[in-house]
Protein backbone atom coordinates (compact mmCIF):
# COMPACT_ATOMS: atom_id res chain seq x y z
CA UNK A 1 0.00 0.00 0.00
CA UNK A 2 1.31 3.43 -0.93
CA UNK A 3 2.03 5.77 1.94
CA UNK A 4 -0.13 8.84 1.19
CA UNK A 5 1.41 11.07 3.85
CA UNK A 6 3.78 13.75 2.68
CA UNK A 7 7.19 14.14 4.28
CA UNK A 8 5.89 16.68 6.82
CA UNK A 9 3.38 14.17 8.25
CA UNK A 10 4.07 11.37 10.66
CA UNK A 11 4.16 7.95 8.97
CA UNK A 12 0.71 6.45 8.63
CA UNK A 13 -0.27 3.22 10.28
CA UNK A 14 -2.78 0.76 8.95
CA UNK A 15 -6.21 1.45 10.35
CA UNK A 16 -7.27 -1.57 12.35
CA UNK A 17 -11.01 -1.43 12.81
CA UNK A 18 -11.14 -3.74 15.81
CA UNK A 19 -8.36 -1.85 17.56
CA UNK A 20 -10.05 1.52 17.02
CA UNK A 21 -13.31 0.25 18.46
CA UNK A 22 -11.79 -1.25 21.59
CA UNK A 23 -11.27 1.57 24.07
CA UNK A 24 -9.66 0.73 27.40
CA UNK A 25 -11.87 -1.24 29.76
CA UNK A 26 -14.25 1.32 31.30
CA UNK A 27 -13.96 2.08 34.99
CA UNK A 28 -16.83 3.48 36.99
CA UNK A 29 -16.11 6.92 38.46
CA UNK A 30 -19.53 7.80 39.85
CA UNK A 31 -23.13 6.62 39.85
CA UNK A 32 -23.67 8.18 36.45
CA UNK A 33 -20.30 8.23 34.67
CA UNK A 34 -17.52 5.95 33.52
CA UNK A 35 -14.01 6.65 32.27
CA UNK A 36 -12.06 4.99 29.47
CA UNK A 37 -8.92 6.83 28.36
CA UNK A 38 -7.34 9.12 30.92
CA UNK A 39 -9.51 12.25 31.23
CA UNK A 40 -12.16 10.81 28.91
CA UNK A 41 -15.48 10.48 30.71
CA UNK A 42 -18.71 9.07 29.38
CA UNK A 43 -22.25 8.93 30.61
CA UNK A 44 -23.02 5.50 32.04
CA UNK A 45 -24.38 3.59 28.99
CA UNK A 46 -27.34 2.40 31.06
CA UNK A 47 -28.60 6.00 31.07
CA UNK A 48 -28.55 6.29 27.29
CA UNK A 49 -30.92 3.53 26.26
CA UNK A 50 -34.24 5.19 25.60
CA UNK A 51 -34.23 8.76 24.24
CA UNK A 52 -30.63 9.28 23.18
CA UNK A 53 -28.57 6.27 22.21
CA UNK A 54 -24.86 6.27 22.81
CA UNK A 55 -22.77 6.52 19.66
CA UNK A 56 -19.71 4.46 19.07
CA UNK A 57 -16.65 6.56 18.45
CA UNK A 58 -13.34 5.30 17.13
CA UNK A 59 -10.57 5.85 19.64
CA UNK A 60 -8.76 8.37 17.46
CA UNK A 61 -11.87 10.53 17.37
CA UNK A 62 -12.42 10.50 21.13
CA UNK A 63 -8.80 11.48 21.64
CA UNK A 64 -8.96 14.11 18.91
CA UNK A 65 -12.04 15.73 20.47
CA UNK A 66 -10.39 15.81 23.87
CA UNK A 67 -7.12 17.21 22.53
CA UNK A 68 -8.77 19.84 20.37
CA UNK A 69 -10.85 20.98 23.32
CA UNK A 70 -7.57 21.53 25.17
CA UNK A 71 -6.19 23.44 22.18
CA UNK A 72 -9.30 25.61 22.21
CA UNK A 73 -8.87 26.42 25.90
CA UNK A 74 -5.17 27.21 25.42
CA UNK A 75 -6.14 29.52 22.57
CA UNK A 76 -8.65 31.27 24.84
CA UNK A 77 -5.96 31.95 27.45
CA UNK A 78 -3.61 33.43 24.88
CA UNK A 79 -6.45 35.46 23.43
CA UNK A 80 -7.30 37.12 26.75
CA UNK A 81 -3.88 37.56 28.35
CA UNK A 82 -0.21 36.99 27.64
CA UNK A 83 0.41 34.73 30.64
CA UNK A 84 -1.54 32.69 33.13
CA UNK A 85 -0.57 32.95 36.78
CA UNK A 86 -0.79 29.54 38.45
CA UNK A 87 -2.89 29.68 41.59
CA UNK A 88 -0.94 26.79 43.11
CA UNK A 89 2.18 28.95 43.27
CA UNK A 90 0.34 31.73 45.08
CA UNK A 91 -1.30 29.26 47.45
CA UNK A 92 2.11 27.77 48.30
CA UNK A 93 3.42 31.26 49.08
CA UNK A 94 0.40 32.02 51.28
CA UNK A 95 0.86 28.71 53.13
CA UNK A 96 4.56 29.39 53.64
CA UNK A 97 3.92 32.91 54.92
CA UNK A 98 1.19 31.68 57.26
CA UNK A 99 3.51 29.05 58.63
CA UNK A 100 6.18 31.67 59.31
CA UNK A 101 3.63 34.14 60.63
CA UNK A 102 0.51 32.25 61.85
CA UNK A 103 -2.79 33.91 60.82
CA UNK A 104 -3.80 34.81 64.41
CA UNK A 105 -0.97 37.36 64.42
CA UNK A 106 -1.61 38.49 60.82
CA UNK A 107 -3.91 41.45 60.14
CA UNK A 108 -7.52 40.19 59.79
CA UNK A 109 -9.18 40.55 56.40
CA UNK A 110 -11.91 43.11 56.33
CA UNK A 111 -15.34 41.59 56.01
CA UNK A 112 -18.78 43.13 56.27
CA UNK A 113 -21.09 41.74 58.97
CA UNK A 114 -23.33 38.91 57.77
Amino acid sequence: MKDVDGPEHSPSYPYRYAEQYSPPEPARVSDVAITTFEHVYEVDPRLMQRWVLQQTFPNWDSLRIMASRQDHLDWMHRHFANTVVNGSVLLAEVEAEDEANPPSTAAPQQEAPR
Binding site: G87, L90, L91, D98
Partner: peptide, 23 residues
Amino acid sequence: GKRLFRIAKEHRARYLGDEISEG
Protein backbone atom coordinates in the same frame (compact mmCIF):
# COMPACT_ATOMS: atom_id res chain seq x y z
CA GLY B 1 -4.16 37.09 43.90
CA LYS B 2 -2.47 36.15 47.16
CA ARG B 3 -4.86 38.44 48.97
CA LEU B 4 -7.79 36.56 47.44
CA PHE B 5 -6.24 33.18 48.26
CA ARG B 6 -5.93 34.26 51.87
CA ILE B 7 -9.59 35.31 51.98
CA ALA B 8 -10.62 31.98 50.47
CA LYS B 9 -8.53 30.12 53.04
CA GLU B 10 -10.25 32.00 55.86
CA HIS B 11 -13.54 30.72 54.49
CA ARG B 12 -12.42 27.08 54.52
CA ALA B 13 -12.06 26.86 50.76
CA ARG B 14 -10.15 24.07 49.03
CA TYR B 15 -8.26 25.15 45.90
CA LEU B 16 -9.28 22.91 42.98
CA GLY B 17 -5.88 23.07 41.31
CA ASP B 18 -4.44 24.83 38.29
CA GLU B 19 -5.82 22.52 35.63
CA ILE B 20 -9.48 22.86 36.64
CA SER B 21 -9.17 26.54 37.50
CA GLU B 22 -7.54 27.55 34.27
CA GLY B 23 -9.55 25.21 32.03
